[in-house]
Design a protein around this nucleic acid. Structure first.
Lengths: 178, 178
DNA sequence: TTAACCATGTAAAAAGTTACATGATTGT
DNA sequence: ACAATCATGTAACTTTTTACATGGTTAA
């Protein structure tokens, strides 16, 4: 489960609450996540139980108490051990490709429409990615090497989308040539 | 659930058994799947119950009976309706990117090792993809337009991997320049 | 007054993965 | 003798998603 390690990762920057983690996840494109907090709160409890983080409760007047989680030395060891473990092949799930695979029952107009919808989605994602890289809302602080990596992570996403748009161009011209 | 529609897709080519579907899935890179038949058999039962496919049982002497599934007209309608529905953004899950995001506790050697392992994985995938495109083991028959699409689907995967390798080159040179 | 933000969570369902189970046949 | 292929499935578990639940504050 990489959610566990991703949380440890964010906590290695600074102590955070579940609510703050949720926002971090939402603004980090290359970390896949549904947007729901369900897993985060659960995982934090589990991390606390296994001694990888500690919990600090801060009472507030008109809001629920903030529960700030701090990473422990054991948590850092766990994170580092995981970070250097053999990486998996990235695994991409594209419903569009599967739709296209069986678009044979559709008319040319319907297929063109499908491609247009998809292209629009990709363009939007690309714009969002570029903006987030520029604004650097979620970014490691005070560390040049880590900052370089994060820059590259965003560049990875951006190049993925750009590659997809190039491919779409080829797809269109191939269709036109038929 | 796109597994349901993917199965309908394969069955739209020709009637197949669960066992044959499994092989099709395994040889189709751009369809994400664990390789286990668990879901396939379950989904076939469900498709049969909802009238999207019919089941033909063929007895054999020394093997379990083959259960050949045929798509119905309603199944084809379902498939076509789904194929033209608004596509999602592809979502990629790359543990490598997340590992790199928190590789800050690692030494330069450890990071280089991580990158090497990843690059090797990608290169292997690329080779496999190219081979499968060449051999065309799973490919629509007797339909030029569908064949063009399938060629493009494989090209999509190939360009993804090639893009990843280019990005890795930039990552390396950025690291060296630090 | 309506939406967004702050801040916590829970319940239930769907989807995906790993491991188990059977047993004959065919090729190296 | 061993592995792979043919052919079916089940059980248990993990992961992910969707929806529900509470309730005050702040800004347009």
């Amino acid at each position: 489960m990489s959610l566990k390690h991703t949380i440890l990762g964010f906590l290695s920057w600074k102590p955070l609450t579940g609510y703050e983690l949720k926002k971090y996840f939402m603004e980090t494109e290359f970390i896949p996540w549904s947007g729901n907090n369900n897993q985060i709160y659960k995982t934090l409890v589990e991390l606390n139980n296994t001694g990888l983080v500690t919990k600090e409760v801060i009472q507030q007047e008109n809001y629920p108490a903030r529960k700030v989680y701090h990473i422990t030395t054991r948590g850092i060891d766990e994170l580092n051990g995981w970070a250097k473990s053999k990486p998996d092949v990235p695994h991409t799930k594209s419903t569009f490709l599967i739709q296209l695979a069986w678009s044979d029952g559709l008319s040319n107009e319907e297929i063109e429409n499908l491609i247009n919808l998809y292209q629009y989605e990709i363009e939007m994602q690309l714009i969002m990615c570029k903006e987030r890289l520029e604004r650097k809302t979620v970014f490691p602080e005070k560390n040049k090497r880590a900052e370089f990596f994060w820059e590259m992570l965003w560049q990875n996403r951006i190049s993925n989308y750009q590659n997809e748009l190039n491919w779409l161009t080829k797809l269109r011209s191939g269709l036109a040539a038929e």
